[in-house]
Lab assay of single mutants.
Amino acid sequence: MQNSHSGVNQLGGVFVNGRPLPDSTRQKIVELAHSGARPCDISRILQVSNGCVSKILGRYYETGSIRPRAIGGSKPRVATPEVVSKIAQYKRECPSIFAWEIRDRLLSEGVCTNDNIPSVSSINRVLRNLASEKQQMGADGMYDKLRMLNGQTGSWGTRPGWYPGTSVPGQPTQDGCQQQEGGGENTNSISSNGEDSDEAQMRLQLKRKLQRNRTSFTQEQIEALEKEFERTHYPDVFARERLAAKIDLPEARIQVWFSNRRAKWRREEKLRNQRRQASNTPSHIPISSSFSTSVYQPIPQPTTPVSSFTSGSMLGRTDTALTNTYSALPPMPSFTMANNLPMQPPVPSQTSSYSCMLPTSPSVNGRSYDTYTPPHMQTHMNSQPMGTSGTTSTGLISPGVSVPVQVPGSEPDMSQYWPRLQ
């Protein structure tokens, strides 16, 4: 039975679970980093996980050691009161100082060594604690504590007292930064006198190289990059290397530039699409467009005044059976039934097929058609009795279509119309 579990990581490298990497692998990681390889490249070359490479390099940059820390136990506290007071002093002298600059000053002034120097995250935590204590304490208590930490007896009751030896409130920041720059020169002199001055200088240079600022491109470089971006948004590694040799930039910087440029292009394309949609959409909808001609068919113009009344309900007709019959029939052209047409008796099958359309009241044959006459024609229609054979009435077949029909004066039988409509 094995005491430890061995495995293979996602890159194909072998590791022992819970145990640190061998010293030979750690040394190779540092050597590759000094030669300029990126952590992701080191991870692929040595088949070590990216997190492990970053952790080893980060500890090497901070402490200069590649040895693993002790497994188990607690780390001794490195942010001692003396170190905290120095950090507060540096922050007062130059409020814009960075944590890694404070760390360098602690090393250069001999406050800490490589073994007990606090990390950048520890210094940031100390600065946050100082800021929170400043908010919790009152103004007087804060000034007393700062005077105690600074070891001075001057008056701290006013704002300019934060910067000793100065009279203009805006000047101390520059003086403090100048003092810090002077301390940086002392850093070089002190570290050069040490035993491991060369190694420390190499480590600091490598650290500065990794902690780079934003790349500033010249106009020629920007023009070359934009020209390549117009050709393709995704250049391959050969195109990037050719462009890197042409404009004297690292291939990694060119790759990052193209990634950022593609993101910018997507944002601009989104804005262009929004403007295009806004320009195509009308600002207001016309009133006429809300009524579609496919839904509402136009009603033909009436030929006679009587045809303006298109349904039985508008003429005072309360018989719903006839109203439904007229509205359900398709529109037909106007025609006239003459008196000489043969009077065919209704076929029983045809009569039964339209039995649902006729009223059940037996008085329908005896009703006159003056009910369908509009009010303004009552006088004219009353002067001509319906009993004469020459009287013409208008029957409504569908809305908007008038059918003048000659009705025999002897017997106005409704059943004569249905064979004609089939």
Rank of each mutant, 00 (worst) to 15 (best):
Q2I: 13
Q2T: 13
N3H: 12
N3L: 10
H5L: 09
H5N: 12
S6N: 09
G7D: 08
G7M: 13
V8Q: 04
V8T: 08
N9D: 03
N9W: 01
Q10P: 03
Q10Y: 02
Q10V: 06
Q10D: 04
Q10E: 06
L11M: 07
L11H: 06
G12W: 00
G12K: 03
G13D: 01
V14P: 08
V14E: 07
V14Y: 14
V14H: 15
V14F: 10
F15Y: 13
G18Y: 00
G18R: 02
R19T: 04
R19M: 06
L21W: 01
L21V: 02
L21M: 02
P22A: 05
D23T: 09
D23L: 14
D23F: 06
D23G: 08
S24C: 12
T25A: 07
T25W: 04
R26D: 02
Q27L: 14
Q27R: 13
K28Y: 05
K28F: 07
K28I: 05
I29G: 03
I29C: 04
I29L: 05
I29E: 04
E31Y: 10
E31T: 08
L32I: 01
L32D: 03
A33M: 11
A33S: 10
G36M: 04
G36T: 03
A37C: 13
A37K: 15
R38D: 01
P39I: 10
C40G: 06
I42G: 00
I42W: 01
S43W: 01
S43K: 02
R44M: 05
I45P: 03
L46Q: 04
V48C: 05
V48M: 01
S49E: 00
N50M: 11
G51C: 06
C52P: 01
V53W: 01
V53M: 00
S54V: 06
S54R: 08
S54Y: 07
K55M: 03
K55G: 05
I56Q: 00
L57T: 05
G58S: 15
R59Q: 05
Y60T: 06
Y60E: 00
E62M: 10
E62W: 06
T63K: 04
T63Q: 05
T63P: 00
T63H: 03
T63A: 05
G64F: 00
G64I: 01
S65G: 05
S65E: 13
S65V: 04
I66Q: 04
R67Q: 12
P68H: 03
P68S: 03
R69Q: 06
R69N: 11
A70V: 08
I71Q: 15
I71L: 07
I71S: 15
I71N: 14
S74R: 14
K75M: 05
K75Q: 05
P76A: 08
P76L: 05
V78E: 00
A79K: 02
A79V: 07
A79T: 15
T80H: 05
T80K: 07
T80P: 05
T80Y: 04
P81T: 08
P81M: 07
P81Y: 07
E82Y: 14
E82C: 08
E82F: 12
V83T: 08
V83G: 02
V84A: 05
V84K: 11
S85L: 09
K86L: 07
K86H: 13
K86N: 11
K86V: 08
I87H: 11
I87Q: 00
I87R: 01
Q89R: 13
Y90W: 09
Y90R: 04
Y90I: 15
K91C: 00
K91N: 05
K91G: 15
K91T: 04
K91Y: 03
R92W: 13
E93R: 08
E93P: 03
C94R: 15
C94Q: 11
C94F: 09
S96L: 09
S96R: 14
I97L: 13
I97V: 15
F98G: 05
F98S: 05
A99Y: 03
A99D: 02
A99N: 06
W100Y: 09
W100G: 06
W100M: 06
W100T: 07
E101G: 07
E101R: 13
E101M: 15
E101A: 10
I102R: 01
I102C: 05
R103W: 04
R105K: 11
L106Y: 02
L106R: 03
L107W: 09
L107V: 11
L107T: 13
S108V: 12
S108Y: 10
S108C: 09
E109H: 12
E109R: 12
E109A: 12
V111N: 09
V111I: 10
T113A: 13
N114S: 11
N114F: 11
N114A: 12
N114L: 10
N116D: 06
N116P: 06
P118A: 08
S119M: 05
V120K: 15
V120R: 15
S121P: 07
S121N: 00
S122K: 10
N124S: 07
N124C: 03
N124G: 06
R125L: 05
V126T: 09
V126Q: 06
V126Y: 05
V126R: 04
L127G: 12
L127S: 07
L127Y: 13
R128C: 00
R128F: 03
L130Y: 08
S132H: 09
E133H: 12
K134S: 09
K134F: 10
Q135H: 10
Q136G: 11
M137G: 11
M137D: 10
M137C: 14
G138F: 13
A139W: 12
A139V: 09
D140N: 10
G141M: 14
G141E: 13
G141F: 11
G141I: 14
M142Q: 13
M142L: 12
Y143V: 12
L149M: 14
N150E: 09
N150K: 13
